[in-house]
């Protein structure tokens, strides 16, 4: 009764980060080790509930003896590793990564972006004025592009997608972190309604043949929105309140409770503003949901706001 299954002993690994010795569990990442030391490492594509995609490269660190930099989020510690997290080389790549992102993507609703840009002295504007949105972006073919004149900086901008009453998708804000695809796919939801389509700079998140969400496999669990780090994916409720200028996280109370539907017992975090539920999330660190919900838990709770009560 209630006995623990395995208590496998794990080895410890000694390494050095910025000259400081540190000892962490085998299997930890450099990011874990940095956090243990209180070193603030920028991350964008990293998600607590997901396997590291290690694609944004804003967390890169320098390893002594290595030809290239390594992503802290996914690189496992090794004995004797010597890590630099703030060398000129690291700062250069982080700065450039932020410039490249910021010059091609609208980061206005990415909470962490402004701080990072400032910290690394990124100057996205030196890559040129941003190019306007391209309605044809979703249909671009791999291996083909128009030769640029270099007078504007190409961007991911494309028209906002509103094709249902629950989600708003503004891929002009998408940094292609893969988190929505990963959470919709094998790592959690297993619905696979979206994938990365196209290639290179034209890569984008897409349904099959750019089908509107109601025609796609989407089941509106909202787990993609929960992991989106940039606000490219947003609940309609938040989108509309922002448009009205009413959205105010400072005035929102967050209360954890249990979903009123089936018997799984999912933890809901209700974001309440003016006695209305404006958003529903789930704690990343609870074993039942790991941050995920289904459509009922995510949206079906609006009945308490409904008229007729």
């Amino acid at each position: 009764m209630g006995e623990m299954q395995h208590l496998t002993a794990r080895r410890m690994v000694d390494l050095e980060i910025d000259g400081e010795p540190v000892r962490v569990l085998e299997g930890s990442t450099i990011l874990d080790a940095c956090r243990g030391l209180g070193i603030d490492t920028p991350t964008l594509c990293y998600g607590e509930t997901l396997r590291p995609a290690n694609v944004c490269r804003v967390c890169v660190v320098e390893l002594e003896g290595a030809r290239v930099l390594a992503p802290a989020c996914s690189r496992k510690v090794e004995p004797g590793m010597k890590v630099r997290t703030d060398s000129e080389r690291v700062r250069h790549s982080r700065k450039l990564v932020l410039e490249l992102l910021s010059s091609s993507v609208d980061l206005s609703t990415t909470p962490a972006a402004a701080g990072y840009l400032e910290r690394y002295g990124a100057e996205p504007e030196r890559h040129g004025p941003p190019a306007p949105a391209d309605p044809g972006r979703d249909r671009r073919r791999a291996g083909h592009h128009e030769e640029p004149d270099g007078q504007t900086a190409a961007t991911a901008a494309s028209p906002i997608k509103i094709d249902n009453e629950l989600y708003v998708r503004d891929y002009s804000k998408c940094i292609l972190c893969y988190k929505c695809v990963d959470v919709c796919g094998e790592q959690h939801q297993n619905t696979f309604a979206i994938a990365v389509a196209g290639r290179g700079f034209d890569a984008r998140i897409s349904t099959e043949y750019v089908a509107p969400l109601p025609e796609s496999a989407c089941v509106y669990c909202g787990n993609c929105i929960a992991v989106c780090p940039t606000g490219a994916l947003m609940f309609t409720s938040e989108h509309e309140l922002r448009a009205e200028g009413v959205w105010d996280e400072a005035r929102q109370e967050r209360t954890d409770t249990i979903c009123p539907y089936c018997g799984v017992g999912c933890n809901l975090t209700l974001h309440v503003q003016d006695n209305r539920i404006v958003k529903v999330t789930s704690p990343d660190d609870h074993d039942i949901t790991r941050g995920n919900l289904c459509v009922k838990g995510r949206f079906g709770v609006q009945h308490v706001n409904a008229r007729g009560r």
Binding site: V55, V97, Y178
Partner: peptide, 9 residues
């Protein structure tokens, strides 16, 4: 054209 598009750099 041939970049896979995965990483930002």
């Amino acid at each position: 054209d041939e970049s896979c598009g995965q990483c930002v750099p």
